[in-house]
């Protein structure tokens, strides 16, 4: 089920994290981290809970600022942009949150419309409706259009969350634990959805996950965050070809226990 890497353009770096450090008080989460994401690549980020995976993609989307180092996304240095420039850049970055982050005072339709209505103010009602229906069909949840987020299951919420980020046709997708807490069949659905998204919209993605089956299915390359640094990277086989006690348990837990 491993996918082909034929479409990746290794000359085009869409995200470059350059010697970035981030700490909260005395807690040093990231230390001089380097990372590159290439055009049309799916990069999987592995790492234990609390190692700073979510912090990493929040830095990339400009929700947090690095203490040191620069983050370049689509040619722009995120941590040096003005609010306005950052807002423009963010329309090209889709962020699927760990807990979906659907607006719970709005229906599914209003959730999906929100980024569109807010960013493209000249769209007609019919155009908006068409876009909403299209992305909703893309994630296979057309019938949920008038429901409230509280009425949906975790997997459905994840898919609506992904649909909401797709509606602006981003060039980059950041997925924070897209399959966490879901049953295996739903996980497979979400994984195929992520691959489909990449094929249909030509996105480059960073996927954070603990789920190695997911990593194997969608990842072109994997990196593992260990003690604030990316010490291991490579293909699935390369990452786990080690006796490192910080790495083995990931594999053992998923495939041996």
């Amino acid at each position: 089920m491993e996918k082909s890497k034929a479409n990746i353009n290794y000359d085009d770096v869409v995200i470059h994290v350059d010697k970035v450090s981030k700490s909260f008080g005395d807690l040093h989460v990231l230390r001089d981290v380097d990372l590159k994401l290439y055009n049309r690549e799916n990069l999987v980020v592995l790492g234990r809970s609390g190692t700073g995976k979510s912090v990493l993609i929040k830095l990339i989307s400009g929700l947090l600022n690095p203490d040191r180092g620069d983050i370049t996304v689509l040619g722009e240095v995120v941590n040096r942009l003005t609010d306005k420039e950052l807002r423009a850049l963010r329309q090209r970055i889709g962020f699927s949150f760990q807990n979906s982050a659907l607006y719970d005072s709005m229906t599914v339709r209003e959730n999906l419309e929100f980024p569109l209505v807010r960013n493209k103010r000249n769209l007609s009602r019919a155009e908006i409706d068409r876009e909403v229906e299209e992305v909703l069909e893309g994630v296979g949840l057309s019938r949920a259009i008038n429901q409230m987020p509280s009425e949906l299951s975790g997997g459905q919420r994840k898919r609506i969350g992904i649909a909401r980020t797709l509606i602006l046709r981003p060039d980059i997708m950041l997925y924070d634990e897209p399959t966490a807490g879901l049953d295996p069949i739903t996980c497979l659905d979400i994984n195929s959805l992520i691959n489909e998204v990449q094929e249909r919209y030509n996105t480059s993605s960073i996927i954070i996950t603990h789920d190695l089956a997911c990593a194997k299915m969608i990842g072109d390359r994997m990196v593992m965050l260990l003690d604030g640094k990316f010490e291991r990277q490579g293909s699935f086989a390369e990452i786990f070809d080690t006796d490192d006690e910080r790495v083995r348990p990931f594999y053992d837990y998923n495939f041996i226990v």
């Binding site: 963010r90 970055i93 962020f95 807990n99 607006y103 980024p115 960013n119």
Partner: peptide, 14 residues
């Protein structure tokens, strides 16, 4: 708490 404010921020709404 549920990151809705962050979600708004990254979807280009202040």
């Amino acid at each position: 708490v549920t990151e809705q404010i962050d979600a708004m921020e990254v979807s280009g709404t202040n």
